[in-house]
């Protein structure tokens, strides 16, 4: 077989633009890294959902989800989280227009909505525990609190993260770094929204129905 190799020559340089280009590339890399992180997070939640489904009848003769779930509260949570996903989208739109005030404003709205979601969830958990369904009550409740709680934990982390990005936007304005950060947090937020839809369907709806 003939040699098909070509000599090694250097890649074309980017001249004065190089620094800028590389920076741009870095942000692209980070975006891709985040997508892959989301894949791992999907598997993480997938495992939790699988556990929940396996244990969904394992109440050891005790309280079931259908006995205790208060759907109005859960529907309110769902509605709030869906709205927050929408407002985080509006934040990205503001960013793309170069509107820093609008961007920070919409992020603030998203944070408020997220915080109310978490408040409602905590209230729900407290009520459930008062009614006698704690994490140690049965395998079903263990799986319930762990799955819903892990989602809640993700949302809480997202809140801290979003606030820190708002502060950074204040300090640095919209540039390639903050732009990527906003894009990532909004991606993360939509992802949590999708996960919640599964939580809502598999944990609450299927249990109550």
């Amino acid at each position: 077989m003939a040699s098909s190799g070509k000599p090694i020559i250097s890649a074309p340089s980017h001249g004065v633009e190089q620094g800028h280009e590389e920076h741009h590339d870095l942000e692209g890399l980070r975006m891709m890294g985040f997508w892959i992180f989301l894949i791992t997070d999907c598997i993480l939640f997938g495992t939790l959902f699988a556990t929940f489904v396996v244990l969904s009848d394992s109440t050891a003769g005790g309280l079931t989800g259908a006995d205790l779930f208060e759907m109005p509260g859960v529907i309110a949570e769902t509605f709030i989280l869906l709205t927050s996903s929408f407002t985080s989208g509006l934040a990205v739109l503001s960013m793309n227009r170069g509107d820093r005030k609008g961007l920070i404003g919409w992020l603030a709205v998203t944070v408020l909505l997220g915080a109310s979601f978490i408040t409602l969830e905590i209230t729900e958990f407290v009520n459930l525990v008062h009614e006698g369904a704690a994490i140690s009550t049965s395998a079903f409740w263990s799986a319930f609190y762990t799955l819903v709680g892990t989602h809640g934990l993700h949302v809480s982390i997202g809140l801290v993260w979003m606030i820190s990005i708002m502060l950074q936007l204040k300090r640095h304005g919209i540039n390639s770094v903050t732009r990527r950060k906003v894009n990532i947090i909004s991606l993360y937020w939509h992802f949590l929204d999708v996960v919640w839809i599964f939580v809502f369907t598999i944990v609450y709806l299927m249990e109550v129905m």
């Binding site: 394992s58 109440t59 140690s136 395998a139 263990s142 799986a143 609190y145 762990t146």
Partner: peptide, 10 residues
């Protein structure tokens, strides 16, 4: 919790 315990549905 009772994911993998012998009792309470684990």
């Amino acid at each position: 919790a009772h994911f993998f315990t012998l009792d309470m549905g684990g």
